[in-house]
Write a protein that binds this DNA or RNA. Structure first.
Length: 414
RNA sequence: GGGGAGAUACCGAAGCGGUCAAACGGGGCAGACUGUAAAUCUGCUGGCUAUGCCUUCGGAGGUUCGAAUCCUCCUCUCCCCA
């Protein structure tokens, strides 16, 4: 007997998801959609507070893509209103408010990146400021009356902060409400999000019910750990790999994750099937150097966000610089003007600063004392050292920061 | 509205009149070891025209030879009571 199409779709949706709540409702929706031959409206929201999409975002985006491939419509909400207000959550630091201009720019670069994964044809992009901005106070009051403080405090991070005596602003209570209202406005059938969004996604169901809509089904996806392997990937923690980064950086960052984390990345990011990944794991257990598999993953990801040629170049670079410890062929250049030289030499500290490798003279001195600095293969140990600058010389700080020095032969004013 | 506690460097957190550019932990950077791994060990982690000088302990004043430390006011946060 041929497989039921609903069961088939459910199987695809379930793969890699943490939870589907409630499964039966999603099934019912799929069944109705097929019967009426209309696509489900699958909601996903993102705040354009930072312009970069990183690998962590690609986990839900990949799932959205699967929905699209099953014939459904993605409603991509750009939370420009949210970004404008400036989410105050997270520690004592008040997040800087973005200007409308910045939000607009971020939103645009955001879309470019998103469509590296999503199918533009099956995506509806909407801005939540369209309905949130014009709301009047009576409407907001009405919305606010739909949830209770006790309910809000069920959310784990609120409860935790409350317990620890950390501030929670009323505005933060409003956030889940706005998000829920978004679901009402776009008539979401399904909403996707990371597991950290579980509360908001569930609350949106209640809001929809309050406004007389059938509640959306929700699909939660695992949060990807950042390159440190501990905290979730996020830009502010600096442990992210951005999809718009140069392939060389993507490759390098993937290579720097621990062996254990590599398998996690395989599961959440790779297009390889589960059995293929399991086989790789087994291979390594039997003695294959994990670097082989790490390179494979690094290549796959670098290629996905650029192209195979560039990914291969990134791999060559990695092998040459880090494995063979050779000096890379291409590196940023620093131009040394005649006015900076005296008798063809320049104090090493000045050179480091000129190259932008250190933020202060004191830092330069420290790095020199640590034996981290070399020029043209020769270690510089004296912080008062003068180096004779060559055209095409190589200044190195630490293991991987290189600058090629260029003499700006006489042409001063350009 | 009343009472209490608190605000310290990137984060957490000591210090409570001089010896404080400020303990300790985390993070970050560098060195060793490696597979640019991870883990571990070690060092560094305000700036400068540098054996000295300058700025920094929520903000503004004040006391003092001297203040992160004491006083006044202000701003913000938390707790208890109403």
């Amino acid at each position: 007997m041929a497989k039921d199409p609903v069961a088939q779709q459910m199987e695809v949706i379930r793969r890699g998801a943490v939870a589907i709540v409630p499964e039966a409702e999603l099934e019912a929706r799929l069944r109705a959609a097929i019967a009426e031959s209309r696509p489900l409206r699958v909601k996903y929201g993102a705040d354009p507070s930072a312009p970069d999409i990183h690998l962590g975002h690609t986990v839900p985006l990949g799932k959205l893509r699967q929905f699209q491939d099953l014939g459904h419509l993605v409603v991509f909400i750009i939370g420009d209103f949210t970004a404008l207000v400036g989410d105050p959550s997270g520690r004592s630091k008040t997040r800087r408010r973005l200007s409308p201009q910045e939000v607009k720019e971020n939103a645009l670069t955001y879309q470019d990146q998103v469509f590296k994964i999503l199918d533009r044809e099956r995506t509806e992009v909407v801005y939540n400021s369209h309905w949130l901005s014009p709301m009047r106070f009576p409407e907001i009051v009405d919305l606010a009356s739909r949830a209770t403080v006790a309910r809000m405090l069920e959310r784990d991070d609120f409860a935790k902060r409350y317990r620890e005596g950390k501030p929670i602003s009323v505005l933060e209570f409003l956030y889940p409400l706005m998000q829920g209202y978004d679901s009402v406005m776009v008539r979401a059938d399904v909403e996707l999000g990371g597991t950290d969004q579980t509360f908001n996604l569930l609350l949106a169901r209640e809001i929809q019910r309050e406004y007389g809509q059938p509640p959306q089904a929700i699909v939660t996806l695992p949060l990807l750990e950042g390159t440190d392997g501990v905290q979730k990937m996020s830009k502010s923690l600096g442990n992210y790999i951005g999809v718009s980064e140069p392939p060389r950086d993507i490759f390098g960052k993937v290579m720097s994750v621990s062996d254990e984390l590599m398998w996690r990345y395989y599961e959440l990011l790779s297009r390889l099937s589960a059995p293929e990944i399991a086989a790789g794991r087994e291979e390594c257990r039997r003695g294959t150097n994990p670097i082989v598999w790490k390179k494979k993953l690094a290549y796959e990801l670098a290629a996905r966000f650029s192209d195979p040629g560039q990914a291969a170049a990134a791999r060559d670079y990695f092998e040459e610089v880090h494995q063979k410890k050779e000096v890379p062929e291409r590196m940023p250049e620093v131009e040394v003007g005649e006015e900076a030289l005296s008798g063809g030499t320049i104090p090493i500290i000045d050179l480091l600063r000129l190259a932008g490798l250190v933020p202060s003279n004191a830092e330069a001195r420290r790095k020199i004392a640590e034996g981290a600095v070399s020029y043209d293969g020769e270690k510089v140990n004296e912080h008062g050292a003068l180096v004779r600058v060559k055209d095409n010389g190589v200044l190195k700080l630490g293991k991987r920061k290189f600058r090629r020095t260029r003499l700006s032969g006489g042409r001063k004013n350009n």
